[in-house]
């Protein structure tokens, strides 16, 4: 059971990574990152069956943090949208070199 859970977690994580790599919309990229975090949460939960509550506590932390991150992230995306009228990452390359 543990092994399967961990494998699923790894697969989800990989999907998240691939999403980040392939998507161009800032919002979707951020969603993919959230997917990665939740994949890790799955691992924590699975592992806490083995080791006790620490993993579950961690999951709570991660969720809280993810929420905060989402708030900040959305604000930033809005800020960029105000300047660029787009959230396509390919068009956001003022800074380079």
């Amino acid at each position: 059971m543990l092994a399967e859970s961990l494998a699923l977690s790894a697969a989800l994580f990989a999907i998240g990574v691939v999403g980040v790599l392939t998507r161009r919309n800032a919002m979707i990229v951020f969603m993919c990152v959230e997917l990665m975090l939740n994949a890790v949460n799955l691992s924590f939960v699975a592992l806490s069956r083995l080791y006790g509550a620490t993993g579950q506590v961690f999951v709570i932390f991660v969720m809280t943090v993810a929420a905060a991150e989402a708030a900040v992230g959305l604000a930033i995306v809005i800020a960029i949208f105000r300047h660029k009228q787009t959230v396509d990452l390919q068009n956001i390359n003022l800074l380079r070199g």
């Binding site: 003022l94 800074l95 380079r96």
Partner: peptide
């Protein structure tokens, strides 16, 4: 040049 400014 590799530092293209693209997050991707």
């Amino acid at each position: 040049q590799l530092q293209s400014g693209q997050v991707g």
